[in-house]
Design a binder for these strands. Structure first.
Length: 565
DNA sequence: GCCGTTTTCGGCCCGACTGTTTTCAGTCG
């Protein structure tokens, strides 16, 4: 029973209560679920310390339920609720246009419990006969049900960023559009994106909406109005376009950037000040006191401006109240890339090509860090090849400082697969785990701790091994790892590869709070992937990191010292 | 069910679009 499972149960309770038209409780259960979901610590540990009720949104009753879940693996209250409406909720909720109320209605009237039964009933025309539902609803449900298989899907930020920019450009070129911005989780640089939100100001809303819904990439128009339209593209990406007035752009941008939880907290602050906040502005009575810019909206709420990447309701609002937000690292502050592969191991481009691309991108330094040791599948270098490559790299003097590095493997017992006699000759050693993911939390932690005790290791790469939309990272005892990293002067990597982004932002936040240094590396295997540096920086920003926390922001002299330490 | 520079009781974010009704509920974000 881990945090995620507990959160799932709480979410489902909220849904069932919603079906039963219970007021306000769903809100409470959802809030509690969100709290549990975004915890860094294991709920079990918090329970042991008796501090469950100190968590936001968790009071006596929900604390008791969490305790029962952890101690018995079950929750009688939940089982009883489920028995009342035995439907496959998670499955049915993925159908566009189906929410808790309609799911209950369909169960009550037609005994529909899952997707298969839903489709069957829709095809037979049974749904249109229910009062309050009609032919169109039935048609939409059927289409939604067919689509479920493909959807529910999220997209990697790194894979969708380019497409989002293209759509934005397409719209920006329209004469009637005077202002446009990408909003939503993409603007917050969340690692995966469910859909795209675009906000714009237009002199002719109808014309803009006609154009947007008629783009050649559109598969289906889900809704089309004068201020809001939704489409699904042929590649299954869902895009929303909202049009607002110029003087509402700031409040609208705030609202559509989210996160939802962050925005809700802002609205509560507004209420506390006898104001009202919506996408149309911040109002005191009928008088609008902010709306044209985000900065003013935050300002009038008594808050520091909060950068989009921070808006996850994980303490940023409290910090902004006290004017204690971090001085976030800027995208331009990151001057070099500390993890990449060339055609010496499993990369595609030569050392020279990587260096040239680095110059084009305007960066000042890189570390070439090909695989070495036992990882033969990745073309890992032998000792002899290492010495040869080192000579090659040291010859380069091209306006870009090139550190010579290696990515070595942490074996199952925590030993490295390259000997110290070699490691001591290279500028920077990155150690990482590529096998034995299934070991226990304890063993994996010990393995990494042991690797960090090798005095040549300066960076631990992709520390949790997660693959976004693929595999969960392994659990580690980060308290121990942070302490060792501090003691030994080892940096933890934010791997900027789109499917990794590992450490994640919550772990970065923890690391930085523990004064651990962060290293950003793209893990690029070709020159195109060097641009992912921005993604890595976004994770650092989401993790509240400042310039001083990130070794990529050091001067070359300071970085050299860090490697030599 | 939770929570408090309005409160230990009485609130709980806000608005667009759709479809089915004729004033609104449900869904979505």
């Amino acid at each position: 029973m881990n945090n995620k499972k507990i959160a799932e149960v709480l979410y489902e309770i909220a849904e069932i209560l919603e079906m039963k038209n219970v007021k306000f409780k769903p809100w409470a259960y959802r809030k509690a679920a969100q709290t549990i979901e975004s915890l860094n610590e294991d709920v079990k540990d918090i329970l042991k310390e008796g501090k469950l009720e100190e968590l936001p949104g968790i009071g006596e009753s929900i604390a008791k339920k969490i305790r029962e879940l952890i101690e018995t693996g079950k929750l009688r209250y939940y089982e009883k609720l489920k028995k009342g409406i035995p439907v496959k909720l998670a499955e049915l909720e993925k159908v566009e246009g189906l929410g808790p109320k309609r799911i209950k209605l369909l169960y009550d009237k037609l005994n529909i419990k899952d997707l298969k039964q839903l489709k069957k009933a829709a095809k037979k025309g049974k749904i249109r006969k229910i009062k309050s539902l009609g032919e169109k609803v039935e048609k939409n449900i059927l289409e939604g049900a067919e689509f479920v298989k493909k959807s529910g899907k999220r997209f990697l930020l790194g894979m969708i960023l380019g497409e989002a920019e293209e759509i934005k450009e397409l719209l920006r070129k329209r004469k009637e559009i005077t202002k446009i911005e990408l909003a939503g989780s993409l603007r917050r640089m969340k690692e995966t994106i469910g859909d795209l939100d675009i906000l714009a100001v237009s002199k002719d809303n109808k014309k803009t909406m006609d154009f947007f819904c008629g783009m050649s990439t559109v598969q289906r128009v889900l809704a089309k109005g004068n201020t809001k339209s939704s489409v699904r593209l042929k590649n299954d990406v869902h895009v929303d376009l909202r049009l607002v007035n110029e003087n509402e752009f700031g409040s609208a941008l705030q609202y559509f950037t989210g996160s939802k939880q962050h925005s809700i907290e802002l609205r509560k602050i507004a209420i506390g000040k006898k104001m009202k906040l919506s996408e149309y502005g911040l109002f005191k009575g009928k008088k609008k006191i902010a709306g044209e810019s985000e900065i003013n909206v935050y300002g009038k709420l008594g808050l520091q401006y909060i950068e989009p990447e921070l808006r996850e309701n994980i303490g940023e609002i409290e910090a902004a109240k006290k004017k204690k937000l971090p001085k976030l690292v800027k995208y331009g502050d990151v001057k070099g890339d500390l993890h990449m592969h060339t055609n010496w191991s499993d990369g595609r481009n030569t050392i020279k090509e990587m260096v040239e691309q680095t110059k084009r991108l305007g960066n000042k330094f890189i570390a070439i860090t090909d695989h070495a040791g036992d990882l033969k599948i990745a073309g890992a270098l032998s000792d002899k090849q290492i010495l040869k490559q080192m000579k090659e790299v040291n010859k380069i003097s091209d306006g870009v400082k090139v550190f010579y590095g290696l990515e070595v493997n942490i074996k199952k017992n925590g030993d490295l697969d390259v000997g110290d006699s070699i490691l001591k000759k290279v500028d920077v050693v990155i150690a990482s785990i590529h096998s034995g993911f299934r070991q226990s939390r304890d063993l994996l932690t010990k393995r990494i701790l042991k690797a960090m005790d090798n005095k040549y290791v300066k960076i631990i790469a992709h520390p949790t091994g997660r693959i976004l939309l693929g595999r969960r990272g392994y659990e580690l005892n980060f308290n121990k790892i942070f302490k060792k990293a501090m003691d030994n002067g080892v940096a933890l990597e934010v791997n900027a590869f789109p499917a990794r982004l590992d450490l994640d932002y919550l772990n970065v936040k923890n690391a930085v709070e523990n004064k651990v240094k962060i290293s950003i590396g793209t893990d690029a295997h070709n020159i195109d992937q060097l641009k992912f540096l921005k993604l890595g920086t976004s994770v650092a920003r989401r993790g509240w990191a400042e310039k001083k926390d990130i070794i990529n922001c050091f001067s070359i002299g300071k970085l050299t010292k860090f490697f030599e330490r």
